[in-house]
Design a protein around this nucleic acid. Structure first.
Length: 610
RNA sequence: GCCGGCGUAGCUCAGUCGGUAGAGCAGCGCAUUCGUAAUGCGCAGGUCACCGGUUCAAGUCCGGUCGCCGGCUCCA
């Protein structure tokens, strides 16, 4: 008892939660086995904010089943059974699960044995015994604050060639208050879903006639255009040139690049006069052609070439997701042709640009450095030097990053920047990828100082990643209330009666001429109604004009969710708005959604927890 | 693509046992000229996603297709 108490006090909060969640997954399996004694168990690990367990069941689970299972789980939690643990030999363990007809468990044990384990660990709570490395909470009573959330399909061992199992997801916390807070967070998060906000704010839509492609409405397109303009400005200031190449190419281009062999099923193809053409899924192959059009001197390097062209990728229908995962999109893409010596400085410059862009929106990101995979191409020594250059550029910018060993592309190591959406899902946005292969495949060269032909290195990189995905992230990040420089309508005049309308139109004209996006709501509605609509449209600045203002020649400024800000003159107003636009001020009061700050690293340490 | 769920007016949603479709908001018209989050009255709006089947009769039951949502896989 005292031992247990000591153990408890030494554990970090995160570790305790981790054990509660892991234990909850066992309690879930306990309940599922009651309902389906013939259930085949796969794995049931803790995850961020909760847990899941994968089952092979005779039929699909219904919401009613979940309720029933949840009620049974509550009984096992109330019973407060102790988690007991022991080890047994591989053979005994296999015999145990053979007797119970649990093929997935047997496969796991065989893999452990193949990895050199001679003993495996078991955990038992009440009637339920599972293969498990642990650790667990002392008793099932620790799982008192849980809720089952959803059931989804998941391939056994994540392999699309293996059986599809049913995965039950749940969330678990140390007490009911935390659970309630988390459920409330989920509700809040749903409200800022970019698909919902896009409809409410009339930014963009999707239509059945072109799945996975965005129909941009005037307001959404304004945001898109402003972002693109900002990005281009930044690129030009950083020594990039911009090109624009075709969308459609003979398949021979992709045979040269390797896409025809490795990316075929993702490309849209067309036939014309017996020849096969492909709609480009990436900008790299045609940018190689741009480089190749003539000879280059080492003096031209690094050569930074931007191309923001439209791309098409035939993504699996089930993978499409709002604006986060589409079939047609545009990257703020560039390719840097450079020498090996220039890599570190170039990467450093790109990291600065990324940091600048994300800083404009107070967006936080997670950095991953992916290193040489098993099936790499090129010389190991070059890989080592390149990986070191990437790491050093990240360190120089004070960025914390995680190393994903062996997760690089076969053609080079890369740095990925992940951003979370409103539901806490990670989406890759910015990316920096070194490429040793493409220049070889396209036989690119530059003439070095010694008059020898050398092969340049290519850096693929994007800041936003795709404009579409980034805008989706942004919509959710600011909950639809954009900073003034991006707001589709930056200011709206609200005349109180018809007599004030003319002054509003005159003032609006002045601001429009200054390049601002301004509207006048001169409908015969009451002020409260107009304010309500402007607030719902999340217009950052509202200018109320009545008899008082007409006489004083001023405007009563009201800001989005900020209330009455007092009177301003037209000159003051114009200066205020222009300053915000020119400095791209992030004038948004964020109510951030804070998902768990646990790092995945912590989860990886318990990787054997099934 | 796979597993599960869903698809009724522009949006959010009702629609009982199978008996021929309803509300609020938005839209349109008229009235109202109003001081910081919803003025009133009226009108219009539907191949119930699509195709097929069962039935005297289908929004409702069955099958297929498409799309969307949550996951898995894959990726920006």
């Amino acid at each position: 008892m005292s031992e247990m108490g000591e153990e408890k006090s030494e554990l970090s909060n995160a570790e305790r939660l981790w054990r509660i969640r892991h234990s909850a997954s066992h309690v879930l399996a306990t309940a599922v086995l009651e309902v389906f004694p013939e259930a085949k168990l796969a794995i049931g690990p803790p995850i961020e904010n909760g847990f899941y367990y994968d089952f092979d069941l005779p039929r699909a689970l219904t919401p009613d089943d979940l309720e029933d299972i949840e009620a049974r789980m509550a009984k096992h939690v109330k019973a407060n059974d102790a988690f007991e643990t022991w080890t047994s030999s591989v053979d005994e363990a296999i015999a145990y699960f053979e007797q119970r007809d649990q093929p997935y468990k047997i496969e796991l044990i065989r893999d452990l044995a193949a990895a050199g384990e001679t003993e495996v660990r078991f955990y038992k709570n009440g009637p339920f015994v599972d293969l498990c490395a642990g650790p667990h909470a002392p008793r099932t009573g620790a799982c008192k604050a849980f809720k089952l959330l959803k059931v989804a399909g998941a391939y056994w061992r994540g392999d699309s060639d293996r059986p599809m199992l049913q995965r039950v997801y749940g969330t678990a916390w140390k007490n009911k208050t935390d659970l309630a807070a988390h459920l409330e967070l989920l509700e809040e998060a749903k409200k800022r879903d970019h698909r919902k906000l896009a409809r409410e704010l009339d930014l963009f839509s999707f239509q059945k006639i072109s799945p996975g492609a965005v129909f941009w409405h005037p307001k959404g397109w304004t945001i898109y255009s402003e972002l693109k303009r900002m990005s281009l400005e930044l690129h030009k200031a950083n020594g990039y040139v911009e090109i624009c190449n075709p969308l459609i190419y003979s398949k021979s281009l992709f045979e040269t690049s390797g896409h025809w062999d490795h990316y075929n099923e993702h490309m849209f193809k067309l036939e014309s006069e017996g020849e096969t053409f492909c709609v480009k899924p990436m900008n790299c192959p045609d940018t190689m052609m741009f480089y190749k059009r003539r000879k280059h001197s080492y003096r031209e390097l690094p050569l930074r070439v931007a191309e923001f062209q439209t791309l098409h990728r035939n993504e699996l229908s089930g993978a499409l997701n709002g604006v986060f995962r589409v079939r047609q999109f545009t990257q703020d893409d560039s390719h840097i042709f450079c020498t090996e010596e220039q890599i570190e400085q170039e990467i450093g410059n790109v990291v600065s640009m990324i940091d600048h862009v994300y800083g404009l929106f107070d967006l936080t990101y997670q950095v991953k450095l992916s290193t040489r995979p098993a099936d790499f191409m090129g010389e190991p020594a070059l890989w080592d030097r390149a990986e070191a250059a990437l790491a050093s550029a990240l360190t120089a910018h004070g960025l914390e990053y995680r190393v994903n060993e062996g997760d690089g592309a076969f053609y080079g190591p890369k740095i990925d920047f992940d951003v979370l959406d409103s539901l806490g899902r990670k989406w890759q946005c910015a990316t920096i990828q070194l490429d040793f292969q493409l220049p070889r495949r396209f036989e690119l060269a530059y003439t070095a100082a010694d008059n020898e032909a050398k092969t340049p290195i290519v850096v693929h990189r994007a800041l936003f990643g795709s404009l579409e995905r980034f805008i989706g992230i942004l919509v959710e990040h600011v909950a639809g209330a954009f900073p003034t420089w991006l707001a589709p309508v930056q200011a709206i005049f609200l005349p109180i009666n018809d007599a004030c309308a003319a002054a509003c139109h005159d003032a609006a004209r002045v601001l429009l001429d200054a390049g601002l996006r301004v509207e006048v709501d001169d409908r015969s509605e009451k002020l409260g109604y107009k304010i309500r609509e402007a607030e719902l449209a999340k217009v950052p600045h509202m200018l109320v004009v009545g008899a008082k203002e007409l006489e004083a020649g001023t405007f009563a400024l009201r800001t989005y969710q900020g209330g009455d800000q007092g009177s301003v003159t037209l000159d003051e107003l114009r200066a205020l708005l222009l300053k915000k636009v020119e400095t791209r001020e992030f004038d948004v009061t964020l109510k951030k959604i804070e998902w768990s700050t646990e790092d995945d690293d912590e989860q990886v340490e318990h990787g054997s927890a099934y």
